[in-house]
């Protein structure tokens, strides 16, 4: 019987006290336990940033790679062994800055994995510079006069790029986030979660209080399968900000479905002995 504690490591996270990452960490372990997964069945891939350290503190297989590049690593691993449950964790700098093109391409491939961005609107590991999701006018160490740029809307981008599960969570609502992760993992295809994750040190705008005053959870009356409505919902910002599944599309083939080489079983289990290259050499005679 797996429990949340099954996924504990001997080490404890060293994020700052009060960091939103703790909520995401707890939600991840809760979700894995409620999915009934065992540690060896799960691979968590991450990039560089505070969020990128997650694999070290959840007992599963992990790959802690380069800034912005976890999605390619995850897609390669999934194609090599599609029996793995693959979770990708990154931050907003990692995923929306350095790794943006990988994000868009992963969406359109509909690779069967769950991609969670812990979005705090600031570069925290490098101690406080502007991020692609910082609000216009955001004052940071690298934008002392305020950011002149319009922030990215990751949800709109993901829907447009072809992601088949697009949701928003909040580390201040851990159980809700855990449920979203469970739904994302159960979804066949590319599940994307943008997660509000307050940085208590470097983002004095988007604080717990700021989020708590604005977020609300989407109810049953909202139909996430309507793409046009999903776009509208994804644009909703200001006094009221929706949490939950914004868009969902079932039945679209995954990247793995579209790869016949792995239809009979994972690539990693295919025998390597006795591969006959004589026909290839004969073609050249």
């Amino acid at each position: 019987m797996v429990t949340k504690e099954t996924f504990d490591t001997k080490l404890s996270p060293h994020w700052c006290p009060g960091c939103g990452d703790y909520g995401a960490w707890r939600a991840t372990k809760m979700a894995l336990a409620s999915l009934g997964l065992e540690p060896h069945q799960v691979l968590i891939v991450s990039g560089i940033g505070n969020a990128g350290k997650m694999p070290h503190w959840v007992r599963t297989y992990g790959f802690h790679g380069l800034h912005g590049r976890p999605l390619p690593v995850a897609q390669g691993a999934k194609l090599a062994n599609h029996e793995l449950t693959v979770l990708v964790v990154g931050g907003d700098g990692d995923g929306y800055g350095e790794g943006m093109s990988h994000f868009i391409h992963a969406c359109r491939r509909n690779s069967d994995m769950t991609y969670m961005i812990l979005n705090n609107g600031v570069y925290a590991l490098t101690t406080g510079q502007v991020s692609p999701t910082s609000e216009k006018g955001f004052v940071s160490k690298s934008t002392p006069e305020g950011s002149p740029e319009t922030p990215i809307n990751p949800l709109v981008l993901a829907i447009a790029a072809g992601a088949t599960f697009v949701a928003r969570g909040y580390t201040g609502k851990t159980e809700h986030l855990a449920k979203l992760i469970v739904e994302g993992v159960r979804h066949r295809g590319f599940a994307f979660l943008d997660v509000f994750q307050p940085c208590v040190v470097f983002n004095k705008v988007n604080t717990y209080k700021w989020y708590n005053e604005r977020v609300y959870t989407l109810g049953k009356e909202y139909d996430p399968t309507d793409r046009a409505r999903a776009f509208q919902k994804a644009y909703e910002w200001g006094d009221r900000i929706p949490l939950g599944v914004i868009y969902r599309e079932e039945g679209k083939p995954t990247m793995e479905d579209e790869t016949p080489q792995i239809a009979k079983g994972p690539l990693v289990r295919q025998p390597l002995k006795g591969i006959d290259i004589k026909p290839l050499m004969e073609q050249l005679l």
């Binding site: 691979l43 891939v45 790959f63 790679g65 390619p72 690593v73 995850a74 897609q75 390669g76 691993a77 999934k78 194609l79 090599a80 062994n81 793995l84 690539l267 990693v268």
Partner: peptide
Amino acid sequence: AGASFAGA
């Protein structure tokens, strides 16, 4: 790198 890490 991901595929190789996974064993292919």
